[in-house]
């Protein structure tokens, strides 16, 4: 089963939130290995948000896969390994019986984590670009809908088919992860330049194809 989940952090907001590094806060969110990674890094705050986004994208994938009601138990998500190559990170994470590989990209604007996948693509919008994108979806008779447990998907109103979609919004950014093979070819062609970016094989993580992340 392919899993989908993503999380974006707007670094321009996150970079001033030093209260997150209080020991009481760290102990509620992270396990010993994770706290060690944060406190021993060159930028503890950046590491805090990186680890948080890894956990959040893992949680989203798990919640969707198990169709679970929302829970808040960040310590049940365990980051087992963490490999940084330049500003890219590959981490292996477990939540209950799931093991996932999460990729993270760090730029001067954002920290973005997503479940490594061969079939899901990622796209990062600025908020105003995202509203244009949503308008285009609506024009094509698609809608972004949420289940009772809060899990989003793209609904094709013509044939009532649902495609999984993971959305994350923070500050000036909205990131989506989506399966391009599920969305109809009609919308693919129409919006090709707009929403779809080609997969780029990534030599650093050769087991996976990593989509290119870009703004327009």
């Amino acid at each position: 089963m392919e899993l989908i989940g993503n999380d974006i952090i707007d670094w321009h907001i996150a970079k001033s939130q030093y209260h997150k590094l209080r020991p009481r806060c760290l102990e509620k969110l992270f396990n010993a290995f994770e706290i060690d990674l944060i406190l021993k890094s060159n930028s503890p705050l950046k590491s805090f948000w990186t680890l948080w986004s890894i956990k959040e994208s893992t949680y989203k994938a798990w919640q969707r896969a198990t169709d679970s009601a929302p829970v808040f138990n960040p310590k049940s998500i365990k980051i087992n390994s963490f490999n940084k190559v330049f500003e890219n990170i590959a981490s292996s994470v477990s939540i209950n019986s799931f093991d996932l590989c999460i990729h993270t990209e760090i730029t001067t604007d954002y920290i973005y984590s997503y479940v490594a996948s061969k079939i899901y693509c990622n796209k990062i919008f600025r908020v105003d670009e995202y509203s244009v994108f949503k308008g285009l979806l609506e024009q094509k008779n698609y809608a972004i809908v949420k289940s009772d447990t809060g899990i989003p998907s793209v609904l094709n109103k013509n044939n009532k088919q649902n495609a999984p979609l993971s959305i994350s919004h923070d500050g000036q950014f909205v990131a989506i992860a989506f399966n391009q093979s599920i969305i109809e070819e009609k919308i693919y062609n129409d919006l090709h330049v707009f929403i779809f970016v080609p997969y780029q094989p990534d030599i650093k993580f050769s087991n996976y194809c990593k989509p290119r992340l870009s703004l327009f």
Binding site: I9, C25, K28
Partner: peptide
């Protein structure tokens, strides 16, 4: 509420 703020509420 952003899930990253749940811990602030709990504290």
């Amino acid at each position: 509420i952003n899930s990253a703020n749940l811990v602030d509420i709990i504290l």
